[in-house]
Design a binder for these strands. Structure first.
Length: 583
RNA sequence: GGUCCCGUAGCUCAGUAGGAUAGAGCGUCGGAUUCCUAAUCCGAAGGCCACAGGUUCGAAUCCUGUCGGGAUCACCA
């Protein structure tokens, strides 16, 4: 088993389950856990078993602990089991256990850490889903990176992941886009269009598309009725914008397997659209009615109208208020499409739908959870991860952006300036529900303030050692089996212990949908590597390479290899490169 | 007014399904380089974990309330 923590959790539970008192009564063991003590002096592992069992057994924790310790002492991997504090049992494991674990890490290769958390469960991760009305701006960045890294993480943790992008290509904003493009088209034909009218997209990025259309269609479109050119230009605009977006995403290293079009949900297939069908499904469950919504609490908007609409009784399934399915003009609402889209995912057998959204979608959480409950009857789950805003700075000064004038910092500009790896790492070097300050000056600085370089440097340093060994000891076969039992230094074994945490970190990060834990773990592991490396400065005996001692060198290189692989794997989840040299 | 998120060192933030003496980076101060890469390391100082109650063997973590900051609130997308 790859996970040291679950391994010992099973051993302890086995001891308890084998006991007479358990077999007679049985009791809940779910709270029994293994953790690494905060203070290294307490040993390698600690368990709360005795404290957890005190209540059901109606015994003193220390009395229970004594019995457990007795059994644990028989474990050949355990050097000592001590009772401490309020009833913790601290375990110290043999050096051989840890060096064996190092062998295990190496034998697992790239798969090490990928515990079977997911067990093949189908998960849908939807992220980015930016409107196809222009290039991606920096506001999309965080969600894109968090979503992509989360998908990487879940995949590694054993889930069957589908990465999905929902193209909002059906709403009024597409009409606005098409009209804006039409204007650029006329401009390309030589017409003086003056300034872009209020309400249309002013950005320069539409100019090439206008030119392209002019080249392809000549003046033909301009002579058509609007009802004729509008669909044509819509189609061309959506395609062009999605191309822009895909290029931007590629620059950030973000990919999706499925691009799902909202328009498809509106299309009539047979006698009805996917949306009508989905609404019928809700109807069958008695969750649809015609009625009016109460006005918002507090400040009521001035243009508030009381009107009867087709509504989803989402309050029956946990929402705060019912949701409109149809607008007053008879069109479906955006949410109606969401209903159909969710049903589509559910019909594709996903048991968990994850949505990575911006903080401005906070109001979405309850209605999506309600929707999941209504459509699946409780068998599928909607999980929403909200990403807080990113505030941009340059040398400590906030950067102002104005969407109205079309002046915003694009995702591409950020990637081009600071690099994909740094952008991705920084976006993950924070809990997603905490706001993030992003300073161009600091992120491009290749030093202390910049954890991505710190981690990449650790990886490069490992490879530097391997290169150096090959140069210093040309006769040494670096791939030969190493006797890792020669590793006895505390710093070396600490590195193994740290690597032993990796499967547990992957597991917990996957369960909680918190990819940032990987980034923080990488920083810690890197820190230990750097620290150990520097110990070799003062004490040459601790250096990795000893030309006069091939066996010792091989053992230490094995440790270096393992560290570099774990870092590389973590960086792969983050979505950053693991460079072998940094000059 | 409702809902959601946040409040931890001077600053920016972690805190492992409730655990032992709350951690890291930056900044400050003091050190380490004829050496496998100093983009690194070692040490010191720095805390009423916003506040008040509650739950329990045990709370930064869970519950209630208060204060402070942010997001959001019918037909848009």
């Amino acid at each position: 088993m790859a996970n040291v923590f679950t391994m010992f959790e099973h051993r302890i539970k086995k001891i308890i389950e084998d006991s007479e008192i358990y077999q007679e009564n049985g009791f809940d063991l779910s709270r029994v856990s293994i953790e690494s003590p905060r203070d290294k002096a307490h040993g390698d592992l600690a368990t709360n078993a005795a404290m957890v069992l005190a209540k059901p057994l109606k015994q003193n924790p220390s009395a229970i602990a004594e019995k457990l310790v007795l059994a644990l002492d028989d474990d050949p991997d355990v050097v000592s089991a001590d009772i401490a504090g309020p009833g913790f049992i601290n375990l110290r494991l043999t050096e051989a256990f840890w060096t064996n674990h190092l062998d295990h890490i190496l034998s697992q290769g790239d798969a090490y850490g990928g515990d079977a958390t997911g067990q093949g469960a189908k998960v849908n991760v939807e992220y980015v889903s930016a409107n196809p009305t222009g290039p991606m701006h920096v506001g999309h960045c965080r969600g894109a990176v968090v979503g992509d890294a989360l998908a990487n993480l879940l995949e590694f943790a054993g889930f069957d992941v589908t990465r999905e992008y929902y193209i909002n290509d059906a709403g009024g904003q597409i009409e606005v886009l098409a009209r804006s493009v039409f204007l650029r088209y006329r401009e390309a034909l030589g017409e003086d269009i003056g300034s872009i009218p209020e309400g249309l997209y002013p950005g320069d990025y539409l100019i090439p598309l206008g030119q392209e259309l002019a080249q392809k269609h000549g003046a033909a479109l301009a002579e058509m009725d609007e009802s004729a050119w509008l669909p044509l230009i819509k189609e061309a605009s959506i395609d062009a914008m999605m191309d822009l977006i895909r290029t931007d995403l590629a620059a950030l290293g973000v990919r999706h397997e499925v691009f799902f079009s909202e328009r498809d949900l509106h299309h009539q297939t047979g006698d009805s659209s996917a949306i009508s069908k989905a609404i019928s499904t809700l109807e069958e469950k008695g969750l649809v009615y015609r009625g009016t919504l109460p006005p918002p609490k507090g400040a009521v908007p001035e243009d508030w109208e009381d009107r009867e609409q087709l509504l989803f009784r989402s309050t029956d399934v946990g929402d705060d208020m019912d949701r409109a399915l149809m607008k007053s003009n008879g069109d479906f609402t955006y949410f109606a499409a969401d209903v159909a889209y969710f049903k589509d995912k559910f019909d594709r057998q996903f048991t968990e739908m994850i949505f990575v959204l911006g903080a401005d979608h906070g109001g979405y959480v309850k209605r999506m959870e309600a929707l999941a409950k209504a459509i699946s009857g409780g068998s599928a789950r909607a999980t929403i991860r909200l990403c807080q805003l990113v505030k941009l700075f340059r040398d400590g000064e906030p950067i102002k952006m104005s969407k109205r004038s079309g002046e915003f910092v694009t995702l591409r500009e950020v990637v081009d300036e600071v690099g994909r790896d740094a952008v991705r790492f920084m976006m993950l070097y924070r809990k997603n529900d905490a706001p993030l300050d992003f300073d161009f000056a600091k992120v491009t600085e290749q030093s202390k303030d910049n954890p991505v370089f710190y981690v990449q440097y650790a990886h490069a340093r490992c490879h530097s050692v391997l290169r150096q060994a090959a140069a210093d000891m040309p006769d040494l076969d670096l791939d030969a089996a190493a006797d890792t039992g020669l590793l006895v230094d505390g710093g070396e074994l600490d590195l193994v212990r740290k690597m032993a945490e990796f499967p547990r970190i992957v597991d917990s990060a996957a369960r909680t949908h918190e990819p940032h834990r990987i980034a923080f773990y990488l920083y810690e592991l890197s820190s230990q590597l750097h620290a150990h490396w520097n110990r070799g400065r003062d004490k040459p005996g601790l250096r990795f390479i000893h030309q006069e001692n091939a066996k010792l060198t091989l053992a230490r290189l094995a440790l270096v290899k393992a560290v570099s692989r774990v870092i590389a794997k973590g960086l792969a989840i983050v979505g950053a490169d693991a460079p072998v040299e940094m000059r």
